[in-house]
């Protein structure tokens, strides 16, 4: 961006940037490769550096129709998608209203919206569980979504607030004087203008839900199964080959989303 263009950008890979790249590769990508190796390991005993025996056992058992993978995968997908769409839908009007909020009350409203980022979310969820039980939300995906929203909404608000900070609300005035109704302005001007931020907010909210372990457990009991719960028990059970396979399945969607949206992350967040 403009800041970068003022400083000379090195054309070739300097030794320094090569070293940094190698370190990042080892630190970030290395452990992920390790998952792949483990998922293909038949037997891999200490102190062997590579599996003594390769096998598709873990994958076969993870992907077979009667394994417990499919229900949690579906559960994570469902909860993550519904959470992401709902959180973004709730955060959009809030972030738009915060942009240009008059007076000092803005800081209070903002704090109230972002507090769950700093206060532990489970502390609130434990307390409200009695109400969820009463309402029949406990042990249901809908209840889990409600709990996930507590963390997902603040993230979406944070992302969209940053987006709206760079948004000129006079665009909406211009549209009104050109004959667009309030509804037309929202759909034809506001939303398209912040499209990048909306996509990033959707991804963030999905990631938050996809990663959530504790809230799912508290509200969903053992009834709502998601991938982190499954992976957790596989790791605790000591089956590292299966953990490797499950881990890769678990990792793929968020990594894909991140790779697709990475170019937009800088402009929106």
């Amino acid at each position: 961006m403009s800041g970068l263009s003022r400083r000379p950008v090195p054309r070739r890979w300097t030794p320094g940037s090569v070293l940094l790249g190698a370190l990042l590769l080892a630190g970030a990508v290395g452990p992920l490769l390790l998952l792949g190796v483990w998922s293909l390991a038949g037997a891999w005993f200490y102190p062997a550096l590579l599996p003594g025996e390769w096998s598709l056992r873990a994958w076969a058992s993870a992907l077979s129709p009667d394994t417990p993978l499919w229900a949690p995968l579906w559960g994570s997908m469902w909860v993550g998608t519904v959470t992401a769409v709902t959180a973004t839908g709730l955060a959009l009007p809030a972030a738009r209203a915060l942009n240009g909020w008059p007076g000092r009350s803005r800081a209070w409203v903002q704090s109230a919206l972002l507090a769950p980022l700093i206060l532990p979310a489970f502390a609130g969820v434990m307390g409200i569980q009695v109400v969820f039980i009463r309402l029949g939300l406990a042990d249901t995906p809908a209840g889990v979504v409600a709990a996930h929203l507590i963390v997902a909404v603040p993230y979406a608000v944070a992302v969209l607030s940053a987006t709206f900070a760079g948004y000129d609300a006079r665009l909406e005035d211009a549209a009104r004087t050109l004959g667009a109704s309030r509804a037309a302005v929202w759909w034809q001007v506001t939303l398209p203008a912040v499209r990048s931020g909306v996509l990033v907010a959707l991804l963030m909210a999905f990631l938050v839900s996809w990663s959530e372990y504790l809230l799912t457990l508290i509200v969903g009991g053992a009834q709502v199964r998601t991938l982190p719960l499954l992976l957790f028990s596989a790791v605790q059970g000591g089956d590292y080959a299966l953990s490797g396979a499950l881990g890769l399945v678990y990792l793929l969607p968020p990594l894909l989303g991140f790779a697709l949206l990475a170019p937009r992350l800088r402009s929106a967040a």
Partner: peptide, 28 residues
Amino acid sequence: AGRARLRFLAGLTLPVPHVLAATLVLLT
């Protein structure tokens, strides 16, 4: 370094869920 590819590499751990990250630490 000013390189988008390095930034991307550095950001790769962001979408990794904590349960999985803990698993990776365990395996390593």
